[in-house]
Design a protein around this nucleic acid. Sequence first.
DNA 1: TGGGGTCAGATTGTTCTACAACTTTGTTTC
DNA 2: GAAACAAAGTTGTAGAACAATCTGACCCCA
Lengths: 217, 217
Amino acid sequence: MIQQGLIQQGVLADSLRQSIIDGEFAPGSKLSEAMLSERFEVSRNTVREAFRVLAEQGLLDHAPHRGVSVAAPTIGDVIDIYRARRTIECTVLRECEPEHPAVQRMRDALAESERWLPKEEWQLVGSANMAFHVAIIDLADSPRLARTYRNLAAELRLVFLEIDDPRALHEPFVRRNRIVLDALLSKGPAAAADALEEYLIQSERLVLGAFARMGRG
Amino acid sequence: MIQQGLIQQGVLADSLRQSIIDGEFAPGSKLSEAMLSERFEVSRNTVREAFRVLAEQGLLDHAPHRGVSVAAPTIGDVIDIYRARRTIECTVLRECEPEHPAVQRMRDALAESERWLPKEEWQLVGSANMAFHVAIIDLADSPRLARTYRNLAAELRLVFLEIDDPRALHEPFVRRNRIVLDALLSKGPAAAADALEEYLIQSERLVLGAFARMGRG
DNA sequence: TGGGGTCAGATTGTTCTACAACTTTGTTTC
DNA sequence: GAAACAAAGTTGTAGAACAATCTGACCCCA
């Protein structure tokens, strides 16, 4: 007997998560139980269970008796997200095995981003960029680190949504990803990790600058 | 107006989490909604919401239509937990600021563990040990890393529960914590991180050995 | 004996209704 | 305008109900 129709709460959580990541619900906007219950045609209880899951992942803020809203990362959050990324991602890369199969996935993701770059398909460039970094984490073969990283990445998506200048956000970093991969292949993990740290520092700087210009504290 | 009586679901999640960590529900044991609903005198809905939170934290396993059970980490999980710990904890320590206030908390926790050591209060030694390592993570001032680490620590508690030889589990590591702290104070973060890595490798070895002897795969 | 198949019972997944607790909003009053 | 109050809306929780699924006991038949 095949396990079919997954549980609705799980589907809803995934679906809602995707909607949020796609920017369908703006960061900071309030999500009422009744509204989602109607839109997704499920009961309030089911909505609430999905809320708990996404809140635990950091995508939603839950204020007692005030409801949940899409997380709206502050500058402090951005700093923290990048700190966590550097801690995990650079260490994984520095200690990786260069023959690991995930390296091929890094290649593929990078090729994908370079393919969309000249066509200025920034959304697709961004997705491929993200796949590149997820592949780096997969070098560690650690489900727990991967899960943590996916949550960080989702939060970062919210940050990018608010900046809304996809070219500035993604264009400069394809080249930097190339540097990271080439360093890994020709000079080894340590050099690649150094290049990655450069990348992350630059990326953080860009995001923080944009935030500051937006007057978001 | 003061924010008082926290929401029941949150209280239940915390309470249940503590019960699990205290070993009140054995790893692998099934938790039925009806049973908890009765024991904690809350509705099934509330129980289910708490389940979602704890499952997301990795403390509960949720099998669709089969209910939730307390996580029962396998050898593979133990390896992953330690891998994640080394990745995060060692990096944080290596890059820390030795004047950080959390260093005092490391001192205090270590003193506490050394205080209970001769009295063979292994439970208390273990708690102080854990506080020591949480303090290390706090060196990074990163809420996200701290949250991730707390989840890892909770899962590890489940592992320790199953081994049930608290002396072997905690006694050798007070001395190693001392080495880590002394290294940090006299030789700096890099040396301390090296000592910590030693610690984690030894701890993992001990746990894996115990698991193997128990025939748990 | 043992391998399947079937059925009843139990548990989970979900919906619905109801209501208490709390927040928010709007209005009145000073 | 600020404080006080009332009304309306939302969240938090309970509880009943039922469909979907799992579990285990039982039976049948090689």
